Amino acid sequence: MTIDVTIYHNPKCGTSRNTLAMIRNAGIEPVVVEYLKDPPSREQLIKMIADAGLTVRAAIREKDTPYAELGLDNPDLTDDELLDAMLEDPILINRPFVISPLGTRLARPSEVVLDILPGTHKGPFAKEDGQQVLDAQGKRLV
């Protein structure tokens, strides 16, 4: 089965690496966008967030970012202000976003990506930390 999948990826992120590996385990070679080098446009970001069923605030990464220093924890900030910050400093975009014809997900935890991939996996899969996600028949364990 051929399916077009795009992952907004940060190779330094374990969750992002696990997600990319799960996509490949399904026999899919996705379009990999290193979003820190090639961030999405405002329109793309708004669409990804909406298609994933998230709020803009839920799509912001707080950990290991300048989130607090920039005052982004202020509940009075508008979505436009939050988007401006995310586009100015893409490290604030939570990751990895994955887009497929079956849907869009913020793959946190990484196995959420399985919801938008066809059910044909090459066999067992374990995350980098050893947690088994798919059994020998490619059936989801978590």
Results as ranks from 00 to 15, higher is better:
residue 72 L to N: 07
residue 72 L to C: 07
residue 73 D to L: 08
residue 73 D to R: 13
residue 74 N to K: 06
residue 74 N to E: 13
residue 74 N to M: 11
residue 76 D to K: 14
residue 76 D to H: 14
residue 77 L to E: 02
residue 78 T to V: 01
residue 78 T to N: 02
residue 78 T to W: 01
residue 79 D to P: 05
residue 81 E to H: 04
residue 81 E to M: 14
residue 82 L to R: 12
residue 82 L to H: 03
residue 83 L to S: 05
residue 83 L to F: 12
residue 84 D to E: 11
residue 84 D to C: 07
residue 84 D to N: 15
residue 85 A to N: 07
residue 85 A to G: 07
residue 85 A to Y: 03
residue 86 M to L: 06
residue 86 M to V: 09
residue 86 M to E: 08
residue 86 M to T: 11
residue 87 L to F: 04
residue 88 E to L: 06
residue 89 D to I: 11
residue 89 D to C: 11
residue 90 P to Q: 06
residue 91 I to W: 00
residue 91 I to C: 05
residue 92 L to K: 05
residue 92 L to I: 10
residue 93 I to S: 10
residue 93 I to P: 12
residue 95 R to H: 12
residue 96 P to S: 11
residue 96 P to L: 07
residue 96 P to C: 08
residue 96 P to K: 04
residue 97 F to K: 10
residue 98 V to E: 14
residue 99 I to V: 15
residue 99 I to D: 11
residue 99 I to W: 08
residue 101 P to A: 09
residue 102 L to G: 04
residue 102 L to K: 14
residue 103 G to T: 09
residue 103 G to A: 06
residue 103 G to H: 07
residue 104 T to D: 13
residue 104 T to V: 15
residue 105 R to V: 15
residue 105 R to D: 05
residue 106 L to Y: 10
residue 106 L to K: 08
residue 106 L to Q: 10
residue 107 A to P: 03
residue 107 A to K: 10
residue 107 A to L: 00
residue 107 A to V: 02
residue 108 R to H: 11
residue 108 R to Y: 06
residue 109 P to G: 05
residue 110 S to L: 05
residue 110 S to I: 01
residue 111 E to P: 00
residue 111 E to A: 05
residue 112 V to F: 01
residue 113 V to G: 02
residue 114 L to K: 01
residue 114 L to I: 15
residue 115 D to N: 14
residue 115 D to T: 11
residue 115 D to A: 08
residue 116 I to R: 00
residue 116 I to N: 00
residue 117 L to T: 02
residue 117 L to M: 09
residue 117 L to Y: 01
residue 118 P to R: 00
residue 118 P to G: 00
residue 118 P to Q: 08
residue 118 P to W: 03
